[in-house]
Amino acid sequence: MTYTGDVTVGGAPETRELAHLSITKVAVDEKMSNNAYLLRCTATGEQVLIDAADDAERLLELIGGGGLTAVVTTHQHWDHHRALAAVARATGAEIVAGAPDADAITEQTGVTVTRRVQHGDTVAVGGCSLEVIALAGHTPGSIALLHTDGDTGVPHLFTGDSLFPGGVGNTFGDADAFTQLVGEVEHKVFDRLPDQTWFYPGHGGDSTIGAERPHLAEWRERGW
């Protein structure tokens, strides 16, 4: 099956095979339709989950008997970590989050964030690596995760709720937070990454940097 990134709650997950990394995308919770991403190193079999958003049973079924090295929570909002406690208990995985959001995640879930990451840190997926890109604005500690495919050189970016097809994440009417977020996304993502970069958001379908780049000025002008 050709990967499209279009998944539905209750439907089948989609898997994309890169040179050294397998990406499985699944949607959970009818109301919020969150995306969760299971990444697997094809050489070692080690796995990392991005956003244990909901439906622990479904996520654990995806994880299977291969175990889980880490769960990365992209930001502190409740809809992105409702299954975190159950997944953590079942797998013993390291719990990773952006440092400014870590305390809030622990307060909301009862799960200790065992690794607080900053911009430029890396998270290993077996022999593969995810670079942490801090994107404050949607929340103070929101992070994206960047993997560059070893064969093609194409970047793959997991953006949480900081970047979607059609705009940056919600800043809830806070003009300063919007200015901060759109500035960080422009500087750290659009100024750095090529058009073929594929990105995977926290809700809905995927897109590429090239498809979104022409609209940056529009986003700034509309203010959300």
Results as ranks from 00 to 15, higher is better:
F199C: 10
A175C: 02
V168F: 05
G183D: 04
T171H: 05
Q180D: 03
H203K: 13
P194I: 15
D174F: 06
N170E: 13
L157D: 03
Y200E: 01
L181G: 04
D161C: 11
Y200W: 15
D174L: 06
E186V: 05
Q180P: 01
D195E: 15
G160C: 14
D191N: 15
Y200T: 12
Q196W: 02
E186L: 08
D161N: 12
N170L: 01
Q196P: 02
E184S: 11
F164E: 00
F172C: 07
P194Q: 15
W198D: 11
D176W: 09
G173P: 11
G166C: 06
K188G: 06
D176K: 07
F178Q: 06
K188I: 04
V189R: 05
E186D: 10
F199P: 12
A177Y: 05
F190Q: 11
D174S: 08
W198V: 14
H187M: 08
H187E: 07
F164R: 00
L157R: 07
S162Y: 02
V182G: 00
F190R: 10
F178E: 03
L181E: 02
V182P: 00
A175G: 03
G169M: 03
D195C: 10
G183P: 05
F164V: 01
G160W: 02
T179Y: 02
D161W: 04
E184Y: 09
T159K: 06
K188W: 07
